[in-house]
Design a protein around this nucleic acid. Sequence first.
DNA 1: TACTTTAGTGCAATCGATTACAATTCAACA
DNA 2: TGTTGAATTGTAATCGATTGCACTAAAGTA
Lengths: 353, 353
Amino acid sequence: MSKKDSVTIYDISKELNISAATVSRALNNNPKISVKTRELVMKTAKKLNYKQNKLALALKSGRTNTVGVIVPYINRNFFSAVIDGIENELSPHGYHVIICQSHENVELEANHVTTLLNTKVDGIFMSVSKSTEDHDHFQKVLNEKVPLVFFDRKKDIQGVSSVTIDDFKGGYLATEHLIKQGATRIAHFSGNLNLEIYRKRHDGYIKALKDYGLPVNEKWIVHTNSKIETGASAVSELWQEKTVPDAIFSASDYAALGAIQELKKLNVSIPDEVSIVGFSNEPFTKFMELPISSVDQTPVLMGQIAAQVFLEQINGNQSLSIEKKVVLAPELYIRKSSNKEKNLKGKPLASME
Amino acid sequence: MSKKDSVTIYDISKELNISAATVSRALNNNPKISVKTRELVMKTAKKLNYKQNKLALALKSGRTNTVGVIVPYINRNFFSAVIDGIENELSPHGYHVIICQSHENVELEANHVTTLLNTKVDGIFMSVSKSTEDHDHFQKVLNEKVPLVFFDRKKDIQGVSSVTIDDFKGGYLATEHLIKQGATRIAHFSGNLNLEIYRKRHDGYIKALKDYGLPVNEKWIVHTNSKIETGASAVSELWQEKTVPDAIFSASDYAALGAIQELKKLNVSIPDEVSIVGFSNEPFTKFMELPISSVDQTPVLMGQIAAQVFLEQINGNQSLSIEKKVVLAPELYIRKSSNKEKNLKGKPLASME
DNA sequence: TACTTTAGTGCAATCGATTACAATTCAACA
DNA sequence: TGTTGAATTGTAATCGATTGCACTAAAGTA
C-alpha cells in the first residue's frame, strides 16, 4: 500500500515508450542495446530515482546476496570479532550479513537454521552451541545445497567446511612456554571436555608435558568454565594441598583471571611463584596491571578466512561439494603473568608454523 | 538451476489436483477453505517438506521481516551489546537483523543505507558515525517511509525516533560523586565535542561543578579520544603544573585507564590522591586490580527499547509519523578507583531517577 | 419446482526484474 | 529493387505466493 511510490523499470519504460525488457537490458549494460537507448534509460533512471528491487531480483535469480551467521552470543568479544571479519570480507562483494544468537541452545539454533533457509540465504556460517548433539538441522542445510561453514566450534560432517584454530597447538604452546620458564608442576584449568576445542587444548597440554618428561598429575587438571569464580575456587582448592602447582595453563582467560585474584589473596607472587597463561586473548588481559599471557585465536582472521571459503564454494563448481578444513595457527602473547624476564611487551613471541 | 528441488505450492496443488490458490489459502488457515481440504493440504505439505518461500512473500507483501543495523564497529562491547538487545527483542517477532559497519565513515554509512533500502528492510537502526554531517541519506530512508531509529549517537531530524542515554546526567552523576568524595579540583577528559554525547557529558560536568560552587578550570578540560595513550599523555601534561587535579572524570574508560597507568608511574595513589571515574562501563573496568568506576550506558536495554520503538511504529498507524525520543537513565558504578570508603563491590550505587 | 443463498474453489492478475525467442528495422550487397 | 544478416527491440513466460472476482454446486426458501 505504502510502497506504491517506488519506481520500477515499468515506470521508466512508460516514460520512454519502450519495453521493460529493453530497460532491464540497458540498465544491465547488455551489449545488444544501442548506445543511444542505454544512455536515455540511464538518464531517465537517474531522473526518476530508480532503485533496483533486490527482492524481485532475488526471487528470479535464486540468490539473495545475504548470508546468515549463527553464534552463541554476539555480545562476546571472540564472536563479534569473527563477525567483524566475515562482514568486512563479504561486504565488498555485495553480501549482507544476518546475525542470529543461539544462546547455546540447540533448538534455537535449529530454528534459526530453518528461518535462514526460508529466507533463502546464500550461505550459513556457524559456531555450534555447546548443547548441540543432533545433526539434523545441518543436514537440512546440505539438502538445500546451501554452503555451510563452521568456525571455531565445529562438527565433523561430510560436505561441511570449517575454519578453526589449532587448539592442540595452542595448548602445547602455552604449556611449553611455561615449561621453558622453569615450571615443572603445571596445572590445567580445562573447559567442558565434550567440546572438541577444550579437549584439544587439554591434549596439547598433556603432549607438552610428556615431550618434556614431566609427569601428568590428574589432580591438577581441574574442570572450570569461563567464569572468574570457577578459576578462583579451583585455586583455593588446589592450594589446600601440600604440593602446589608452580604454573597454570587455563583454557579460559576468565578462569585465569579468577586464579590470579585468588592467588593474590593468598599472597602468592605472580609470575615468580606461579606463572599463568590463559586462552582467547580477551581484551582485558592486556589492560591489567599484571597483564595476562594468553593464546590468541585470531578471530578476525578466522572470520575472513571463513568468508573466503564461502566465496570459493559459491563461485566454484556447485556440483562438486567442496569440503575445506582450514586450521589457523594460534599465537601466544606472552605478558607479565608468565614472564620472569621482565622486558617483554606483549607482542606475539611465539607461534608454531 | 540448483534450486529446482525446492517444493512450492504448485507441487502441492498438482499432487492433490486442486488450484494453487486453494493451497495457499489452506496453508494460511483461511476460513473459506473446508476442513477436509485444509487437512489434506497440510498433510501433503508436510509430506513433501514444503517450506514457504519468504522471498516470494516479501515481493508480494512488501515486507521482508528484516531490519538493518548500522554501527561504527560491531566489534565493540557497547555496540554488540545494543545489537544483542535488538536481536533478542525482535527475533521472537520473526525479524532478522542485518548488521553493517560504517567504520566511522559517512560514505560507507550512506552506502549501507542505500543497499539496505534496496533490499527493502522493514526498518533501520543506527548509531551515526563521527564524521557524519550530511543528512541526505537519512532523508532517503524517510522518503521510502522506512522507520528509522537512532540509538546513542543521534541526529535531530524530524520524523526520526531515537533512544539515547542522558549523557548530561551521566556527566553530572560522575562529577557529583567525585565532589562528594571530597574532590575540589576535578579534571575532565572529554571526547570530540562535536558529538552530542560528549558535549552533554561535558555540560553535566560543568553543571555539577557550578551547583557545588566549584570553579571551572579550562586547563583541566582536556580533549582525549577513546585511546589509552591519550589518557596517559593528558595526565603527564597536567602533572607538570604546580597545581594538579585531585580527581578525573573521563568521558572514556580507555582514557581513564591510560590516566591510571600514568598516575601509577608517577606514584600517585588512587583513589586517595586522585579519584577517577570513566564512562561506558567497559567489561575490563571491573576486572582490574584497581576496578574503575564508570557510568553504565545500559546498552542491552537500549537495544531492546529501540526495537520496541520500531515495533510500535510498524504496528501503529503508518500514516502519522510517530517520532519518539526515549532517554534512558545512566547508572554510575562506583568502584575502587573513586571510592575512599573501601567497602563497596561495584554495584550500582547511584542513579538519578 | 424455481430461485436465492452460501460455502468452497478456480482463474488470473500482481509484486518487479530477467531472458529465451520472436519480430522488426535498416544498412549492405547482388 | 529484392535479399540477407546484423543490430535492436518487443512479447511473454518465469520466479512463488497472495487475493479480488467469478463460478459451481449444494442447501435453503417460497
